[in-house]
Amino acid sequence: MKDMNVRTPLVEIKGLEKQFDLDQGWLETLKFRNGRITREKRAVHAVNNVTLDVNRGEALCVVGESGCGKSTVARLVAGLLTPTSGEIHYDGSRIDDLSRAQMQPLRNRIQMIFQNPYASLNPRMTIRQALEEPVRHHNPSFSAAEVREKVTEVMMSVGVDPTWAKRYPHEFSGGQRQRIAIARALTVDPEFIIADEPISALDVSIQAQVLNLMLEAKESRGLTYLFITHDLSVVEHFGTRVAVLYLGSVCEVADTATLFSNPKHPYTRALLSAVPQLKDDRPNHIRLKGEIPTPINMPQGCPFQSRCAFANNRCDSEKPKAIHQPDGSLVACHAVEENRLDEG
């Protein structure tokens, strides 16, 4: 199966769905409504029919509002959650149905950087212990001194004082911890990194340094990224392609340049207009009006309809399918399909 066909995407996500039950116990499903006891089972529809490829050597950025399912997609791909339905293929083989033990060989090829820097390091391990482990694993012939030297180098590459290696995570600031977590992920020398908001806790100068480090790894080692971020200036800088998620559904996938120069989906447009500008007092963003639906009470039809200025009857009842556009992007919107978006 593992042929040299570079054209097959590294990761193929097909019709991915994830629901979380809100009511665990049987008792909890009993609800008292209008004077009667009824049974209701409520679920969070976190990811809905997501189909997406990650190509080798690319940085696919996933953007979208808080709660739209970005981290859930990341955790599903990393094998930390089991999908409700759908498939995930990695390097040509299906991985979503693997057991923990079967996933093991992939653990070093796939690394995940978590959203919360405070949760990504083991609090009982010194920084040295956390970093030495992957260094040893990859360089079994290294002497103790060589391992130490490598750890020093890794810490310096993310701007953390190597003499602090003997310290525990709680002695570092939020941003320092996140950089150590990123350094650790890169040290494992994976081929695929799933990074969930890896740099949003970092200040700009360190962001620049860490982004450059990640870009370098991408170019020199052909590393592939699934990169979740809400910072669109980072997307523009780092991403080769962008997928925009809304309420667990993909609304638009496009090359970064295309997305920024010619966003099509009404939600993408609103998102791009909301970027805070440095030297301007009044944010001039398209305010999204209307009730934000939650993945608990999923609307029928287009997930974006309650806030969309272009919604019509069709949008109420029929969920738009992703359709290929002439410029190569994929857009799931009836108005785009019907060509009525830029008229009037």
Partner: peptide
């Protein structure tokens, strides 16, 4: 302290 780091721009605004 970094109240909106994990938030996308629309909700941040």
């Amino acid at each position: 302290d970094e109240p909106t780091t994990a938030l996308d721009v629309t909700i941040q605004a």
